[in-house]
Design a binder for these strands. Structure first.
Lengths: 329, 329
DNA sequence: GCTTGTGGTGGTAGCGCTCTCAGGTGTGCG
DNA sequence: CGCACACCTGAGAGCGCTACCACCACAAGC
């Protein structure tokens, strides 16, 4: 339980209480090297009698391990940090890191200038980096010292393993649903065009449309609700006949729905709308949004785990995305 | 800029390059003690020529300062960590901490058993704690070593300063709006009853109803959408005549609206619904939700800053909440 | 006997930093 | 001239921990 003393117990205290040397106590607590059953018992007992908690700071110092994981978000402006997507990444990473005594820091890497990575590479406090919204420039800017400590959510590279949702499969599931429910004049509102992983959805959309002999109708979005609304109006202007919109994110879809309604169109009766992400609100929006799942928490947890354990991981891990058919499409 | 060497530069490297002792370099970089203009110039130049970044780990070790801030969420089950509210607290805290080389860790303190605080008190890696969803039990369990390093979002105590939204003012703004738009049979769906800060809204509601000579209609909720829906049905059963619902959170309000519609009632024509939080989705929901602002980001940033700077702060800081009148009420 | 393990232990050198302390060099003043 | 004082500097002692290394005891093999 731990006697509440003024000063937290140190390894020395534990060793002294157990009648062994600091080295032996360290071996027992660290679980390495040879230790007798007797030593293990005594050190263990002493440790939890004193409420011993290892000092991650000292440990990191001597191991050169670092003490916080940086979630580096690449984007156009500081506001990308407000994206609920980023929130979920940070929370999931934090939950993985907490038991290791590792903290999480959220940082912004301006789009086109990922030189901040150099500083992160020089910072000994950093035990690893999770890149969000990867760009080729960022991948190229990863400093040598960080090799093997950087992972990416989104597209990776030979040296940076990636963890991502299977955008193509998600897009296909949604588009197939639109098709089987009779929609043929389907437009897509994309994510930001510089985002490699967002482009995968567009590629999937184009491929599917072509395969079905349907015309391609693409409008650029940026994952936000506001832009989604504007994109919907543009789509309507260019293709007044459209009967479905596939939005690259749920937030976009909400904007699309609001804009369509503003034009007097009924969703899904006149125009079906589907999103991507399956945000919590998607289930309670009006109408409830048809979308595809995006297991951000599992993705971020896997990414953080990979950094923390430094285990060798596959260069690219894809997480399944499945259709959630509700009422908007 | 920093020449990309294999090993990040240390203070020794900087001192040697500047031709001064480590102590002088430390004084210059740390900005304390006496330093000559000459020394300052040379050390500064050497530092950024070498791309020197102080090792927060070593610094924390010698200062006994800790290296991560813990956001401790008190709640019924592990799932409270998925609350978007918590996400925002973590992100805002992280943004404040990042420049200091401090990470953020998210932890869950089971409701009724805040003994985890004892462990945090023994953990030298922890530089402070931000308590979310404070309970009296948690306030009492704060270990001595953590005194002055713990703040609370929600109600505090003599030793734990608090930062919170002005629930009462927010509730009043919303209820006044309902009243002036002609609603008289107003029910409230509350937050969790054990949450001190949530009870402040209920108290405000009761006071206002009483002052207006209106009957009090209170149903217990827990801030979730699902519970909001069930609470709305219960309210409808008990008071079929009601013409407005004040939900203690936007998430609750969404559940309420969905449930009311399920009963064939129109919002706001038959029943007005207002929430509290002003989530991003509130602006695009259908109908757009009337609610009151909850500046979580500013609150969390202030809380984190207080812990980090250890400056003396007022025992309780309230952040204004203002009405956002949209269409649901 | 001597070697070569095998299982266990303690001494101790740092990791990179901060900060105290003992000095050193002026400058002003009695 | 002596003394106080302000300004500046470097040596060095650790912060708590890990891990390298030397050592010891005992057993087995030649």
């Amino acid at each position: 339980m731990g006697t509440p003393t003024t000063r937290p117990a140190t390894l020395d205290d534990v060793a002294r209480a157990a009648g062994v040397s600091r080295a032996t106590a360290s071996r027992v607590l660290g679980g390495y090297g040879f230790t007798s059953a007797d030593a293990r018992a005594r050190v263990g007992a002493a440790a939890d009698r004193l409420g011993y908690v290892p000092d991650v700071t000292a440990r990191a110092l001597v191991r050169g391990a670092g003490v916080r994981l940086v979630v580096a978000v690449i984007g156009r402006a500081g506001t990308v940090l407000d994206d609920p997507y980023v929130h979920r990444v940070v929370s999931a990473a934090s939950r993985v890191c907490a038991p290791h005594g590792v903290g999480v820091a959220l940082e912004w890497l301006p789009l086109g200038d990922p030189s901040g990575l150099v500083r992160l590479g020089a910072d000994r406090g950093v035990c690893g980096v999770v890149l969000v919204n990867t760009t080729p420039a960022a991948l190229a800017a990863v400093p040598a010292r960080l090799q093997g400590r950087v992972v990416s959510i989104g597209t990776g590279s030979a040296t940076v393993p990636s963890f991502d949702v299977d955008n193509a499969a998600g897009a296909e599931a949604v588009l197939r649903h639109l098709y089987t429910t009779g929609r043929r004049r389907i437009a897509m509102v994309t994510g930001p065009r510089w985002l490699v992983c967002a482009e995968r959805s567009v590629t999937a959309y184009r491929g599917l449309m072509r395969a079905a002999g349907l015309p391609e109708r693409v409008v650029t979005g940026d994952f936000t609700t506001a832009r989604g609304g504007r994109a919907a109006l543009e789509a309507l202007r260019r293709w007044p006949e459209l009967d479905a919109v596939y939005a690259a994110s749920d937030a976009t879809a909400f904007g699309v729905i609001a804009a369509l309604r503003g034009r007097g169109l009924r969703v899904p009766h006149d125009v079906a709308v589907a999103g991507f992400d399956d945000l919590p609100y998607a289930a309670v929006s009006s109408p409830p949004l048809t979308t595809a799942t995006h297991p951000v928490d599992r993705i971020a947890a896997a990414a953080a785990t990979a950094v923390l354990t430094r285990a060798s991981v596959a260069p690219a891990t894809a997480f399944a995305s499945t259709l959630v058919a509700r009422e908007s499409a």
